[in-house]
């Protein structure tokens, strides 16, 4: 688990403290009974705070699993770094 994954897992653990590390990796509305609208808002806010990002208003719908959120963060990080060195 890299640093980014660890930080994301900490966010999940804060919102869903009942989950184990293994369960967090597979977390989604289908696997977590307490995954409701309040939990989603809290999760998004914690992630924004932890990663210092602002999630677009249309994006929350995409936040429906640990894996998709991780992909979102990785994509956001790539975008923020811009194109790599060319030579």
């Amino acid at each position: 688990m890299d640093e980014q994954q660890k930080r994301l897992a900490n966010c999940f653990y804060a919102v869903f403290p009942e989950l184990s590390s293994e369960e967090i990796i597979h977390a989604s509305p289908a696997t977590v009974p307490s995954w409701d609208s309040v939990a989603v808002v809290t999760l998004i806010t914690v992630i924004e705070e932890e990663f210092g990002i602002s999630i677009e208003e249309d994006d929350p719908a995409k936040f429906d699993s640990y894996q998709r959120i991780l992909s979102y963060l990785q994509e956001a990080e790539r975008k923020s770094q811009g194109p790599g060195d060319v030579g």
Partner: peptide, 12 residues
Amino acid sequence: MKLLEALNILES
């Protein structure tokens, strides 16, 4: 206090 910190306090 950060929200993450607050949530962790709540757990205890």
